[in-house]
Amino acid sequence: MVDLSVAGIATGETRKPNLKSLWSGLAPWALPLVLLVVWEIAARTGLVTARLMPAPTTIAAAFWRSLLDGSLLFHTLASTRRAFIGLAIGGGLGFVAGVLTGLWKPAETLFDSTVQMVRNIPHLALIPLVILWFGIDETAKIFLVSIGVFFPIYINTFYGVRTIDPQIVEMASVYGLDRKALIRRIILPGALPSILVGLRYALGFMWLTLIVAETISSTNGIGYMTMNAREFLQTDVVLLGIIVYALLGKLADVVTRAIEKRVLVWHPAYRIKQGGEP
């Protein structure tokens, strides 16, 4: 409501701020648009080889084609399914481990230094090993995604639990909260901002891992789609796959931001700015 009234005052006074806000809304899109146009022209005039770098309109056509024959949806769903199973397993374990080590000193002593050591191994370096262990089926890919998302969730959950204001914890114990209530009402909500940061990192790792895992061995998924297209020199489909990955990543980020905005309403930093000074 405040937003509306502020905007109302602004339009009543002068038209200038309106144009300004229109400009600031469009400005970020200017550069990509110009690039697209230049790209299109370059591809059409043969300045770049269309076979290596097809024009945007060709990619759009490939998008339309794969949308109509259902293959795009099929591969996207296959990838998304893997991504979320991996996220559920790795993220769930990371969350539980983070809470446990954050709350309980012996668990930290036992667990944390090992985790910090293993964390520094690039998990994609495990691919040869994972193929030996699980073969090239579904388990291998889900395993890799799980490992990829485990660490960011674990580290940020641990950090969030650890950095809760000890004064509030002391207050809670003076006011008679038992351990269960303390964890449920004080520690977990207090660690939530940090956990959500971990989730956003994890989502990035999730798609990254999946791209690599699917290009190695798959019969479906966006990674398979692009590798298959490469075999037949369908550069437009390869680029389409890359764009789909980018969009999926962006979508995941938008969703987490929305979640943040919703569950962190209490946090001054996340409160929607109410009008403010122009």
Binding site: I168, E170, Y175, G176, L177, R185, P189, G190, W266, H267
Partner: peptide
Amino acid sequence: RLVPWQRVIENVGIA
């Protein structure tokens, strides 16, 4: 020492 993620009434009825 109010709990920032609980509303005023939840802070008062903390127990």
